[in-house]
Design a protein around this nucleic acid. Structure first.
Lengths: 181, 181
DNA sequence: GTCTATATCACGATAGAC
DNA sequence: GTCTATCGTGATATAGAC
C-alpha cells in the first residue's frame, strides 16, 4: 500500500496550483491527502523531502511527455500547444506537476536543484519538438509560444476574447512542415 | 520626503525576484531598504499594504510601457521581445515589477486582485502590439513568444545554446510587416 | 516620523502511544 | 504504519519611547 505517497503528492500539487506555496503547509497537505500530519511525515520525512518527491515526479513525467510529443498523431507542435494551454493538461501528465513546481522555485536551499530540473524539462521538450521541426529556431519559437500559454495558465489570465489555440495552430501551420490533419 | 516608499518597494521587488516570497519578510525588506521595521510599517501598515503598493506600481508601469511599445523605434515586436528576454528589463520598467508580482500570485486574500492586475498588464501589452500588427492572431503569437521568454527569465533557465533573441526576430520578420531595421 | 521591545500566532519537526 | 500531543522558531503586527 504505497498509494498514500501518490495521494500526498497529488494533494501537494493541487494546493500549490490553487492556493500557492504559502498555503501548501504540511497540515494543509495532510488534510487534503486525508492522512494525519504524522502519517505524511512517515512518507516524507521533511518538507524538503516532499519537494524532492515532487521534483522526481516531474522528471519522470517530463521524460514520458517527451515521448508523447514525438508520437502525437496531430504533430509535435499541436500537442505541445494543446497541453500547454489553460485546461489542456491531462491527468497524470507533466502540465500540472510543472505548474506546481513553478510555484516553489524560491531561492532557498532547494532552489538550485529546482532550477536544474526545470532546465531539464525544458531541454526535453525542445529536443522532442526539434525531432519534428529540425530547424532549431522554429522549434524554439514553437516552444516559446507554448510557454507563453503556460504563463497564462500560471497567472490565471483568460485567453483574449475570440481567440483560441486553434487560431495559433492554423497560423503557425503556414510556416511549419505539414504535421497531420 | 517620500523617497523611502520607493526604496522599500525596490527592496521588496529585488528580494522577491532573487530569493522568492518566502525570504521577502518584513525584516528582510526593511533591512534591504535601510529602514527599521517600524519605519517600514509606518509607510506600509501591513504586508498586504506592501503587496498593494507593488500592484499599484505595476499598473502605473504597465501603462507607461504600453506607450513605450507603441513608440519603440525598432518596432513593437522587437521591443517586446527584447524587454521580455532575460536581462532585457530596463531599470524602472515593468519587467522587474512584473516578475516580482508573479512570485506572489498566491491564493490569499490579495490573490484575486493580483490576478486582475496581471490580466490588465496582459491586455495593455496586447493592445499595444495590435497597434502595430493589426492582425490579432499575429499580435497574440508575438506576445506569447515574449511571454515564453518571460517564463524563462522567471525560472532562470538559460537560452538554448547558440540561439538568441535576434534569431527569433529575424525569423518572425519574415511573417510580420516591416518594422524598422 | 522613526525607532525598540514585545505580544501573538502559525509552521515545521519531534516524541511516543497505539 | 498511522495517529495525537507538543516544542522551538520565526513571522506579522502592536505599543509606546524618543
Amino acid at each position: 500500500m504505497t498509494g498514500a505517497r501518490d495521494r500526498v503528492l497529488d494533494a501537494y500539487e493541487t494546493l500549490l496550483i490553487d492556493h500557492g506555496p504559502g498555503s501548501a503547509t504540511l497540515d494543509a497537505v495532510a488534510a487534503a491527502a486525508e492522512v494525519s500530519k504524522g502519517g505524511l511525515l512517515y512518507h516524507f520525512a521533511s518538507k524538503d523531502a516532499l519537494v524532492t518527491g515532487l521534483l522526481d515526479r516531474l522528471r519522470e513525467r517530463s521524460a514520458a511527455d517527451a515521448d508523447a510529443i514525438r508520437t502525437a498523431p496531430d504533430g509535435a507542435v499541436a500537442y505541445y500547444l494543446r497541453t500547454s494551454a489553460p485546461g489542456g493538461g491531462v491527468p497524470g501528465g507533466v502540465t500540472r506537476t510543472y505548474l506546481a513546481v513553478l510555484r516553489i522555485s524560491e531561492g532557498s536551499s532547494t532552489g538550485r536543484t529546482i532550477r536544474e530540473v526545470l532546465a531539464e524539462v525544458d531541454a526535453d521538450a525542445f529536443a522532442a519538438l526539434r525531432a519534428e521541426l529540425d530547424d532549431p529556431v522554429l522549434a524554439w519559437l514553437a516552444q516559446l509560444v507554448g510557454d507563453g500559454l503556460y504563463l497564462r495558465t500560471l497567472t490565471g489570465t483568460p485567453l483574449p476574447p475570440g481567440l483560441g489555440v486553434e487560431d495559433l495552430l492554423a497560423r503557425m501551420r503556414r510556416y511549419l512542415p505539414d504535421a497531420g490533419s
